[in-house]
Every structure is written in C-alpha cells, then in structure tokens.
C-alpha cells in the first residue's frame, strides 16, 4: 500500500500547532498515534495534504487527579496509558477496562484518547464511557481554550463540532456521585473487531434505589448517543431484574442503528436491549466506577 505525499510539521507547542492548523485549514490534520489516520490515508478515505504531529507536546500525556477539577486525561495518552494508569485504576476502573477492549495491544500502545474522540467513529469505545461519566473535553484553538461536554463533540460519522484550528488537549472526568459504571463492547471476535454495539452506563445506587443514571450507546447511531429516556426511567427505581430489563427495552428504542456487513439494524437494536440490561447489572454489582 502507499501513503500519499504530505507535508509534515512537528510543532513545539500547542499554540504553534493551532496556528498551523488555522493557517492550512481543512488541508491539514493532526497526527497523534496514527492508528486510524494513517490507515485511512492508505485507503484514501482521508487525504490531508499536511500533517501536524503533536509528538513533541508531552504535556498532553499526563493522567492525574486535580482536586476540584477531577481526573484529567491528557489527550495524547494512549489506550494502554489508560489501562495502566494508577489514578484511573483507582478512581475509574471502567475507563481502564473500556480502553483495554478498544483494540489489540499494538494499537492500544499507539492510538490515543484524543484520536479516539476526534476521529468521531460511531463505534469508538472510549466516548460512551466518558459520556456516561459526564466527561468534558478541553480544546485549544488559536483563540484560546474552551471546554465542552464530550457528548457535544460529535456531529456525525467522522465529523466533530471542533473548529479547524482546535485540538483536544484534555478529557476531564468530574468528581461525581455515581457508585458504579461499566462499559460493554459487543464485538464479533476477541480482538481487532469494531463494536457492533457498545453500551456504557453509570449509576448512583443508594439503599438499592437508583438515584441517578447515565446511559450512553456506541455504534448504534451516527454519533455516540445518550439514552435519556432510559436514564429518566431508571431514576428513583428500586433495583430489580424487571427494572433493568425494562430499561433495556427503552434503550433499544432510543438508538438508530444501520445495517452493515457486521450486523443488521434489527440485531443491533436488540443487542442494545440486552447489553443495557447487562451493563446496568454489572455497574450495580461490581461496585466501582
């Protein structure tokens, strides 16, 4: 295969990177781990003329807890950085687990959090769990920084609401009251398979009553989506198999999947039902977020 020609820049600062992105406009793309971008360029799905490498921006690789802010994940962190992060293992094991399911080891060692979000692939594995945990992203552009809710990043397959000059620099998981969370990826083989359905949930359960719930679905719509009716249904309910089953049924009504070679829309819809139920059960029983 052949990687078409492009110009390459490796700026020393985020500001410089944003400036280059602004200067070149839609002809330029950010290069991080390359696991998605380089493959898509070889397949000519994407044809950037300029790549802006962020390899020198080491400040974007930290994963730390900032009191008052939450857990801050640098966007250049690889999936395996998430898997191995002590902070995440302690505070949000579900994120480490979701990162571990994303792909095989070599890809997890290169593919980044920022890439997994900004590629806006509907089946991406990190966005659902981030959304379930009410994460925000910090983006930096030529005009400065702003933050937005993670679920507001996505505009469609391969499309985000970021402007051309903006780079995702951080994902922030705010402190929260959720008592449990979980992400289930349903793929068709043990590794190296895109999610047919991905379901992430976070619940706040006290005295066996669901005080709060967030449900996010991947691979079943043009973007990762919240199952808001399901969340509303769950609030205030006592935990029972019936309630969780009913939640699954409601969630399956909240997705708009497509049919492709991996699965039909009908199958995906029913799998949303099954895995919403199972993800809720696991989040409640496992007792960790």
């Amino acid at each position: 295969m052949y990687l078409p020609d492009f110009e390459y820049y490796a700026p020393d600062s985020i500001a410089e990177a944003c400036k280059l992105l602004s200067q070149f406009g839609p002809r330029a793309k950010v290069l991080a781990g390359g696991t998605d971008l380089i493959a898509k360029m070889k397949n000519e799905v994407l044809k950037p003329e300029i790549l802006i490498s962020i390899k020198k921006l080491d400040q974007m690789k930290k994963i730390e807890y900032v009191p008052g802010k939450g857990v801050v994940i640098g966007a250049r962190s690889t999936h395996n950085d998430l898997v191995n992060s002590k902070v995440l293992n302690e505070k949000y094991l579900s994120i480490s687990e979701a990162a571990h399911q994303m792909a095989a080891n070599q890809v997890r060692n290169a593919g980044t959090v920022g890439g997994n979000i900004s590629n806006a692939v509907p089946s991406a594995d990190l966005p659902p769990i981030f959304i379930a945990l009410n994460a925000a992203v910090k983006v930096t552009g030529v005009k400065g920084e702003r933050s937005l809710a993670l679920e507001d990043v996505f505009a469609g397959p391969g499309k985000t609401n970021l402007t051309q000059d903006e780079i995702i620099t951080e994902v922030i998981i705010p402190d929260q009251k959720m008592t449990g969370s979980n992400y289930i990826k349903f793929g068709l083989r043990g590794a190296g398979a895109l999610a047919v359905v991905g379901v992430a949930v976070a619940v706040q359960v006290e005295n066996n009553v669901i005080k709060d719930a967030r449900v996010a679905l991947g691979a079943v719509a043009a973007t990762p989506v919240r199952a808001k009716k399901t969340e509303e249904f769950l609030k205030g309910k006592k935990v029972s198999d019936e309630v969780l089953a009913e939640a699954g049924v409601i969630a399956s009504g909240e997705c708009k999947p497509i049919s492709d070679v991996r699965a039909s829309a009908e199958y995906r819809t029913d799998m949303v039902r099954v895995f919403t139920k199972r993800a809720l059960r696991a989040a409640i029983d496992k007792g960790h977020v």
Binding site: A104, L188, R189, G190, A191, G192, A193
Partner: peptide
C-alpha cells in the same frame, strides 16, 4: 475479514 485471534 475476521480470521480468528488467539482469544477466539
């Protein structure tokens, strides 16, 4: 084209 991985 999904040939099995070691996990399968």
């Amino acid at each position: 084209y999904m040939i099995m991985t070691a996990l399968d």
